[in-house]
């Protein structure tokens, strides 16, 4: 499943088909490239002028050669065109049993809405989960400017256009796999940070995950806030034993009232904690520099797990 020097790992059937086409075209391109450069170098070396007044051969053209080098490239392109066009029609039509995921792009995050689970569906933030070996139809839109939904490992890309629903479908392979969703259409300041995690899960794991509303991790275990806090590096600045590091300690912070830099007061509850993780500079507590990086890529489930962990530190 490792990618080559040329292409990332191919984790969908579409990816395998696209890669075959890619290598066919690369074969053709390399042959033409070598032909042109070989002739170029041979002629430049072989016919180098040795006497300054020498003239070349007075040769104005050759109709038969012109026809040959018009028709041969044209024929190659016709074959390539027919092969590619067939693929386009196959790529366009999703199977009837495709699992539908709604993709909503906005500056600068990805939201994925799953049609089932508790309360008839739920939404994750920057956390795309796909069942393995099952066709998936993405219904894509944007709430503000144009974005583009790109998953390199699946070889699919489709713009997210405000006011429109665009669609693309794909069937991930059987194996589990982890990769990223990138935004490929320029959308402003944080265009390059509009990255989401994506994960292909075994179908039974995916089923459990959906049934829990995105609250359990792929192996079926509930998300562990402590582990997440270590993973994201929170504990480098937030102590859990009462010490003051670069940021406020988490010990006993939940439920207290804190004074902000602008003098106003805020109660430390679920909502405030989540906001401070996603957008730390919105409400900075007095006495601290606004230096915490934002973590907009966390899913709702991850945020909740972190908050629950902080809550537990009495």
């Amino acid at each position: 499943m490792e990618g080559s020097l040329f292409l990332p790992a191919a984790l969908s059937e579409t990816a395998k088909d696209v890669d075959v086409l890619f290598y066919i075209l690369t074969g053709i391109a390399v042959v033409i490239f070598l032909l042109v450069w070989m002739l170029l170098l041979i002629f430049l070396v072989r016919y180098r002028r040795k006497h300054p007044t020498k003239q070349g051969l007075r040769l104005y053209g050759n109709t038969r050669l012109e026809i040959i080098w018009t028709v041969i490239p044209a024929l190659i392109l016709v074959v390539l065109g027919i092969y590619s066009a067939q693929m386009v029609y196959a790529l366009q039509k999703p199977p009837a049993d495709a699992y539908e995921i709604q993709v909503t792009a906005s500056k600068w995050k990805w939201e994925f809405t799953y049609p089932d689970g508790p309360n008839g569906g739920f939404t994750t933030l920057n956390d795309l989960r796909l069942p393995a070996d099952k066709p998936i139809l993405f219904r894509i839109t944007s709430t503000d400017v144009i974005h583009s939904f790109w998953i390199p490992e699946l070889r699919i890309k489709m713009d997210a256009v405000p006011g429109r629903e665009t669609r693309v479908w794909v069937k991930p392979l059987k194996e589990e796999g982890k990769f990223k969703v990138l935004c490929a259409e320029y959308c402003g300041t944080a265009h390059a940070n509009m990255v989401s995690d994506a994960l292909v899960m075994k179908e039974e794991h995916f089923g459990k995950w959906v049934a829990s509303g995105g609250k359990v991790d792929p192996s079926g275990q509930p998300l562990d806030g402590k582990q997440l806090a270590q993973q994201f590096g929170c504990l480098a600045c937030h102590a859990i034993d009462g010490r003051e590091l670069a940021g406020p300690t988490w010990k006993g912070i939940y439920g207290t009232e804190r004074e902000l830099v602008d003098g106003s007061k805020v109660k430390v509850d679920d909502e405030y904690l989540k906001e401070s993780i996603v957008n730390p500079n919105a409400k900075v507590v007095k006495g601290y520099a606004p230096s915490m990086p934002a973590y907009p890529q966390l899913s709702d489930a991850q945020l909740q797990a972190l908050v629950d962990y902080i809550k537990s530190l009495k």
Partner: peptide, 20 residues
């Protein structure tokens, strides 16, 4: 080289991956 790489981008299935 620029002409040959254009063939990839002119191709709809390959452009799905390579566009932008």
């Amino acid at each position: 080289i620029g002409g040959l790489s254009g063939l990839y981008l002119a191709n709809v299935p390959l452009d799905l991956h390579l566009h932008d």
